[in-house]
Amino acid sequence: MHIGKSYRLGEFLRWTRRNTYILFFLGLFPVIIHEIWGLKWLNVPWPVVALLGTATAFTVGFKNAQTYARAAEGQRIWTDILGLSRFWGTISIDFINNPIHSKELVYRHLAWLTALRYYLREDRVWESNEKSHNKEYQQFFHIPERMRPLETGLKEFLPDDELELVLRSRNRMGKILALQSKTVKSLNESGQVIAPQYAAMQQMIKDFYAAQAKCEQLKDSPYPRQYAVINHFFVWTFCFMLPFGIVHDFDLLNEVVSAPLRGYMAWVTIPFSMLISWMYISLEQVGESTENPFEGSANDVPISQMSQQLNIELREMLGESKLPQDLQPRNNIIL
């Protein structure tokens, strides 16, 4: 997530520069046909291009609205996890008069958060994080889950026997919650947690299962491919046809301009077609980079920072004095 005032224009131009190179050649080709080859009849009527541009604007706007909704949903889910986790820490300490068991429940919950965020940072074939423009931009920020393996992150919170069970499990987050439920049941049977408290803690575990399922659904259900593909086709078709639609109109300006521009106005098609096409291409690229809010791109939900925040707060609740440091943004980006 970018936490600065805004992206700089230079950053944006660098991020989109590969498409800008393509747009230059798409603008150059019709001008060469028109001016050098003399095929001035080979153009597209402007109303056709305008209609295509309008349709493309609708598809781009629809996609960006939907991808923003996915990002906002991811933020809402993790905001809920933030509140639930704080309450879990509170009841784990207040319900149980045994600091060892309280620490066990809190640390296991931190292990659940760790396993969940590592799962959400895994790659999916439909994600855009490995595309060249996004991969190159990763040099400007850190993805904490790529800095050290999951086993190292879990070892901080789980004993060796539980760590082995969790790492062998297909659903590591679910296994950790199952261990939480087993511990809470054991505390109830030993009389350390009375029935109403036991019910409240089991309800909390159920809520964590629900939050995990929402994260899994958002992670493993991509933005519908049919909409993504048609949006991509529309945008590039418009970018291809636009210079064919405006080259004739710019050529007509030769009748009203004076030297030294007279006779060369058709070449102005290139910068203007690039500018208009760049706006459409950039909006499409922004929508693509927003549709998967957990993949590890610069615009993702900062689940690593939120998990570290909970790590600090919950351990502070336990009375610990040696606390981890907050994650710091790099180039105004924090994950």
Score class of each variant (00 low, 15 high):
2 H>W: 04
2 H>G: 11
2 H>K: 11
4 G>M: 07
7 Y>S: 09
8 R>T: 14
10 G>I: 03
12 F>M: 14
14 R>H: 06
18 R>Y: 15
19 N>H: 14
20 T>M: 14
23 L>P: 00
24 F>A: 09
26 L>C: 07
28 L>H: 10
30 P>D: 10
36 I>W: 15
37 W>G: 13
39 L>N: 09
39 L>W: 15
39 L>E: 10
49 V>A: 15
49 V>M: 09
52 L>A: 09
56 T>Y: 04
57 A>M: 06
58 F>A: 14
59 T>F: 10
63 K>C: 07
64 N>W: 08
68 Y>A: 12
70 R>I: 01
71 A>G: 07
73 E>N: 10
78 W>N: 04
78 W>H: 05
79 T>I: 06
81 I>Y: 01
83 G>M: 09
84 L>W: 03
85 S>G: 12
86 R>Q: 10
91 I>T: 05
93 I>R: 00
94 D>E: 15
96 I>F: 01
98 N>W: 00
98 N>L: 01
99 P>F: 00
99 P>R: 03
108 R>N: 00
109 H>L: 08
110 L>P: 01
112 W>Y: 10
113 L>W: 00
113 L>P: 03
119 Y>M: 10
124 R>C: 12
132 S>W: 04
133 H>Q: 13
134 N>P: 03
138 Q>K: 08
140 F>D: 12
144 P>Q: 08
148 R>L: 10
149 P>E: 09
152 T>Q: 15
156 E>S: 11
164 E>T: 09
165 L>E: 14
170 R>M: 11
172 R>Y: 00
179 L>A: 01
181 S>C: 03
182 K>V: 01
183 T>R: 05
185 K>N: 06
185 K>D: 02
186 S>C: 02
187 L>D: 00
188 N>Q: 13
189 E>C: 08
189 E>D: 14
195 A>R: 06
198 Y>T: 02
199 A>K: 11
199 A>L: 14
205 I>L: 14
208 F>R: 03
212 Q>H: 11
212 Q>M: 08
214 K>A: 13
215 C>L: 06
218 L>T: 04
225 R>K: 12
227 Y>S: 08
227 Y>H: 10
228 A>E: 08
228 A>I: 02
230 I>W: 05
236 W>D: 08
237 T>I: 09
249 D>C: 08
249 D>M: 13
253 L>K: 01
254 N>R: 04
255 E>G: 06
258 S>E: 15
260 P>R: 07
261 L>D: 02
262 R>F: 07
266 A>C: 09
267 W>I: 06
268 V>E: 04
270 I>R: 02
272 F>G: 06
272 F>P: 01
273 S>F: 03
275 L>A: 15
276 I>T: 07
279 M>I: 14
280 Y>I: 02
280 Y>G: 01
284 E>P: 01
284 E>S: 12
285 Q>K: 14
286 V>C: 06
287 G>S: 05
288 E>L: 13
291 E>N: 09
291 E>A: 09
291 E>I: 01
293 P>Y: 06
293 P>L: 10
296 G>T: 00
296 G>S: 08
297 S>K: 06
300 D>N: 12
306 M>W: 05
309 Q>S: 10
311 N>I: 01
314 L>T: 00
314 L>D: 00
314 L>M: 04
314 L>G: 01
319 G>F: 04
320 E>D: 09
322 K>E: 12
326 D>H: 13
327 L>G: 00
327 L>K: 03
329 P>G: 05
